[in-house]
Design a protein around this nucleic acid. Structure first.
Lengths: 121, 121
DNA sequence: TTTTGTGCAAACTATTTGCAAACCG
DNA sequence: CGGTTTGCAAATAGTTTGCACAAAA
C-alpha cells in the first residue's frame, strides 16, 4: 500500500458519501499535489479487485465508489441524485433466486424514489 | 416515424436478444447502407423516451436495448454474458419498498449467475 | 537490484452534437 | 416551401494505457 493508495482509500472510507473518481482525485490532489488522475483510477481498480471498496456504475454518469464492502442495494433520488445504502433482507434474496430458479452469484439493485428533501415521501 | 427509425425498431423487437447500439447499427446498415451510426443512437434515444424500448446500462460495456416495455430484472451469466429477462413478483417489490420505508418510482435489478451452458446450476 | 507503482500524456470507447444537405408533408 | 431528420465528421466524457522515471522491498 503506497501513500497514494492509502490517501485514496481514506477519502472513500472517511465519509458515507459515494464519490466519483474525479471528486476523489480533487480531494486527494489537495493533500498531494503531485498525484495524477491516472493513479486514482489505477488504485480504485486495485482496491475494488481486493474487495476493499465497491464500484457503483451509474447510468449516464461517472461511476461512484462505496466504502461498504457487503453487497447491498442503493436507494437513489431521481431528482437530486442522492445515494443511500439500503438493506436487502436475505429472505428476499432467496425468494428472488427461487423465483428465477437459479443460484445467484451476485446482484446489482438500484431503487429509485424521490427523497423527502425533493418533495417525495 | 422515418424508415430509419422503423428499421431500428424492428431489429430490436424482432428477437428477444438484448443488442448493443453497434450490433443494431451493423444489422440495420446491411439493409440500408447509407444509415449512419449517429442516426442509430439518436433513434434509440427517441424510442426509449417514447417508452417503446428500454435501455439497459451494462457496467463497463456498451448499453443494450430491450424490446420488453415493462420493468423487470435481468438475469446475466457472469461467464458468457447472456442476458435473460426475469420476473419480479409484485409482492417482492412491495416488500422492498416497505423495507426501505419509501415509495419507489422505479428500479434496476441485475441478477448474476452462471448459466447451465457455462457449467452453472 | 529487481520489482512495483507513479506521473504524464496520449489513446481508447461509447456516445453526443453541430451543421449542411436531404426528405416529407 | 418549412420543419424534421439524416449523414458525416468532429467533439466529448470517462477511463485506460505505454512509458520513462521514482520508490520500495
Amino acid at each position: 500500500m503506497t501513500r497514494q493508495r492509502q490517501l485514496i482509500y481514506s477519502i472513500i472510507t472517511a465519509a458515507p458519501e459515494h464519490r466519483t473518481a474525479e471528486e476523489i482525485y480533487e480531494l486527494a490532489h489537495r493533500d498531494m499535489p503531485s498525484l495524477a488522475r491516472g493513479t486514482v483510477y489505477r488504485n480504485l481498480g486495485i482496491l475494488e479487485q481486493e474487495g476493499q471498496i465497491r464500484k457503483l456504475e451509474m447510468p449516464g454518469a461517472p461511476a461512484r465508489y462505496d466504502r461498504e464492502r457487503l453487497p447491498h442495494p442503493h436507494l437513489i433520488c431521481q431528482r437530486c441524485g442522492r445515494i443511500q445504502d439500503a438493506a436487502m433482507p436475505p429472505t428476499l434474496l432467496e425468494e428472488l433466486a427461487r423465483e428465477q430458479g437459479v443460484t445467484l452469484t451476485g446482484y446489482d439493485l438500484k431503487l429509485y424514489h424521490i427523497c423527502p428533501a425533493c418533495g417525495g415521501t
